[in-house]
Nucleic acid binder design. Sequence first.
DNA 1: ATTGTTTTATTCATAGATCGAACAAATGAC
DNA 2: GTCATTTGTTCGATCTATGAATAAAACAAT
Lengths: 405, 405
Amino acid sequence: MTAMTMLPLSPRETARRRLLDALRREGPLARVEIGQHLGMSPASVSDLTAGLLDEGVLVAEEAADPASGLIRGRPKTRLYFAETLGSVIGVWTGFNRIELRLVDSAGRNRASRHIERPLRNLGAEELMDVLAGTITAFAQETGAHNVKAVGLACQGYVDTRDGIVAWSPVLGTRDLPLASGLGQRLGRPVLIENDASAMAFAITQRNADLRSGRTACLMVGDGVGLGFLIQGELYRGARFGGSEFGHVRLRRSGPQCRCGGRGCIEAYLADYALHRDAQLIDHRPAPTLLLPSEDAMGSIVEQARAGDPALLNLFQAAGEVLGDAVGILIQTLEPDHIVICGPGTRAMDLLRPSFEAALASQTIPELRALAAIHVVESSMDLLTEGVVIQALRELDLDLARLKAA
Amino acid sequence: MTAMTMLPLSPRETARRRLLDALRREGPLARVEIGQHLGMSPASVSDLTAGLLDEGVLVAEEAADPASGLIRGRPKTRLYFAETLGSVIGVWTGFNRIELRLVDSAGRNRASRHIERPLRNLGAEELMDVLAGTITAFAQETGAHNVKAVGLACQGYVDTRDGIVAWSPVLGTRDLPLASGLGQRLGRPVLIENDASAMAFAITQRNADLRSGRTACLMVGDGVGLGFLIQGELYRGARFGGSEFGHVRLRRSGPQCRCGGRGCIEAYLADYALHRDAQLIDHRPAPTLLLPSEDAMGSIVEQARAGDPALLNLFQAAGEVLGDAVGILIQTLEPDHIVICGPGTRAMDLLRPSFEAALASQTIPELRALAAIHVVESSMDLLTEGVVIQALRELDLDLARLKAA
DNA sequence: ATTGTTTTATTCATAGATCGAACAAATGAC
DNA sequence: GTCATTTGTTCGATCTATGAATAAAACAAT
């Protein structure tokens, strides 16, 4: 797995991928059930699964279904991922935090952890050393055996095919070949992805509705990012990155953003922005762009709910920006679904009045009605989940190609 | 052809469509050449063309190549569309103008015309009567024989699959079943499309580069619209429409827009907006939202070029809005290509300084560098050309299906 | 116990699409 | 007239997916 394979897949590879995706989403399935999920004939499913069982990717579940009393015919034999395929580590790097997660080959969580560590001022080599060290330590401490790949999600414009971070507000450097650099240090393949895209992917894996049509997932958290999916596939821009929607400038001379600009969507909505502006109200000392703790954010939200007028203003302005942002998405992309997700949804009650007013004031009602707006409360966990699933999918493909070669 | 077929195409249908598309774009081609264009084996091309020749869709060109002196082997026999297949009429309806074009089955222009006619205040039935009358008169006057279909492009959110104008700033009504209504009156199938999408399609048909990757075509003319293509295929939003990017609100309390809102991109850049604001400068009587003539626009541009400060301010503000708009597109979609097209490009020299400054001030340089910006000077002609090609493509499919049934 | 019913899974022959290779066709070069 | 060269067709092989027949594995009924 060198970064992500973007080659067009053969029909067989497409079918295999769809089958394994269905198993990861739904858990163990019998062959008939797979056929129903994928709209595929039993004959084709048998053919595909025979290959996968042969290669050791899948195993048949033990019968062990004594309570099946009332079912008549031949019992189902469910298929699932073999335990022996090894594990995958998913990582998220933020401005000053690293989240880690270890999963087995089926994507089931085995361990997770997060550590605080400022990364912004590290050089390229130093940064990759720190990341590699952190990942290796995590693997040892959790007793991870047979780690087959590492998936890493981070902010910025990530060339997922070539494994290069073209630009990031989090890292100081540009055009950083992060996948190969980390891959060398860890001795295993590394896949990198934009963090909002990773979360969007995880969310759409959990909800079948969101995998049909066009779904725009606006992630509000450490930063603001957009993951956009068409028919369940992540949209990729030039150089195979996602979107930097969070750095669209909405106000000509708004607050400072991590990207160096002013008035970006993120500069109003991100945790660091709300925390900084809350500090400014209290005339606290040095406001920073660091990601505040969940506790700190929680207390700001509590104070606002309790009626603090200055904080309410802050959330009111943020909600307005969120409404403007969603309005732009609706008028530009006319998605079937808009998902507002990420830790920032914790304050959705505070954002909602001004959000809805701003949205209504600038979108054409007939068009606004076409997009269903979902609020999905989700924590940073979903970031590592998303990138881990993607790494597993790449491993699936590699296994098949290994076999073919 | 009931509106547009959005059903997934069979492999055969996809191959046929690609073949016929290549012929329309490139003109008559020999079978080997088709194979090279499509990356297809000679055997497959022979197979496909045999069917198309049999059905009478294609005919072989007369040899008649006496000047071929220096070529060695068996001469090519070029294939092209049969003349007997009939013709197609393409229509564009603006705020107060109708453009018409008659083409043969290969898409070659046979006649074109435009008439001034305010459409805004007509009821649904009246509007369709006027359009049907205009089209019928045009067909008669040009001696159009065997008109197989009509393609119509208009502003607004057009459900291309079902043939419904969900919303339009030009028409008074909403959810207008324009394709079926016109189809009944004309006794022929009618395909409708958003006008910016139609122009984007026409432009990408002419330039192979723009058909790979993601291309955002911003059309500036009677209004402002966006046609967005991914790998040469038009992006479709919910309900199979395109984008209403022109009605993204950029300034909170900007000038009045045709959509009823304020500060939309269109309200600064569209011909009607520039013309209105120019009239306001001169304290002329009633400023209107009508589309001015090309002469009127030309004289405004000339006065500005001559140094009229108030007009220069107008174009400076418009250029800034254009820069903001392109900036949003870059940060949101990271397209490989951005095309600025439409009659509005006539003033590109006046717009460019503030356009580039605004673009630079709000986009991340590394990301801005990923998108190639093209200015394509194009008139309203390309609108009807785009929709006519689409109608012809639908007819191609219908022919095949007719044969299959 | 035996037979039938029901559901699951496999096998096999078939169909559609594409392609490589061999072959046929049409011309200029010599 | 023969050869070289390029175009176009035919044929068999491969790959993919499917319907139909068949086998397998259970429960139900007698």
